[in-house]
Design a protein around this nucleic acid. Structure first.
Lengths: 147, 147
DNA sequence: CTACAAGCTCAACTTAACTTGAGGTCAAGC
DNA sequence: GCTTGACCTCAAGTTAAGTTGAGCTTGTAG
């Protein structure tokens, strides 16, 4: 029982849960690849499901297609990714992911702390002083020239 | 020494780190509010800095302006938010934030695990079977009718 | 062999979130 | 009193990520 190696767009769409138009789009952007039948129809290798899965998860957490594309570019064409391939992709993202996780926690815990501290003492709020650096220099008039 | 209560757009822009045009935009979308001077210029209360800070952090983690707007709508106009106000906003977001954090970790740890397991045994990869539910029913031909 | 579901291409439309530009007003320093 | 920098409004442009539609081809089931 040989495995089915080739998938049509429709099959990939169904399995991955993304629209056919989106798959066309990803292909145009170089995120996935296909070869064509004699009748000019797309056929995908099974590795495309992996790629699409990664695209979806990455997108859900706010990584742009451009970034995803760059990362996926490090994966070999056609061949099933090896340990080293994943290693590359992973380390390329780890820092960004860690940063995002930290941001998310800051927001969640920031709000938590705001509740905890009642936010009457605004200075203790962890959400404070994000891009409001000048405010720390005191209240009142201040320079209008950028630092 | 009475505190400076009113801020111009330029001042808010400088302190919050967002462009003046973005502030206009947020105001048009109802995320922030201002009143006008006799000369039709915007003046903001200090609470606007809090709001913009929240907008920025929330956006950075992928929350849309629409959602942010909804959440901010629960904050009282003009008045400094009380503990209860923050409580509402926070609980409204907590679940979504927790979910996103989980997603992010899944991606980060998924990749880590892929390295750990070498991804040769594709079935063990935590990234697998995300929207590829059908694949678990076996390899090969399957129904073309949606579940 | 013929119907009709799937595919194909390409152009145009959509939404979000802003930015840019044109054309005109306000206010503080010299 | 005039110049200059900050503001104002409104319309149009921009980028990302797709979707929709028109018009035409493929391929499979009856």
């Amino acid at each position: 029982m040989a495995p089915v190696t080739e998938l049509t767009v429709g099959q990939v769409a169904m399995r991955s849960g993304v629209a056919v138009s989106a798959l066309h789009f990803y292909e145009a952007r170089g995120l996935i690849r296909s070869h064509r039948t004699s009748g000019n129809q797309r056929r995908y290798g099974r590795d495309v499901l992996r790629r699409v899965a990664i695209i979806k998860v990455a997108q859900e957490v706010g990584i742009s297609l451009a970034e995803i594309g760059e990362a996926l570019a490090s994966l070999p064409e056609g061949r099933t990714p090896t340990r080293d391939d994943w290693n590359l992709l992973s380390t390329a993202w780890r820092d960004g992911l860690d940063h995002k996780i930290a941001q998310l926690k800051k927001l969640r815990d920031g709000l938590t702390d705001c509740i905890g501290c009642g936010c009457m003492s605004i200075d203790k709020c962890p959400l404070r002083n994000k891009g409001d650096r000048l405010a720390r220099e005191g209240t009142g008039a201040r320079r209008l020239i950028a630092p």
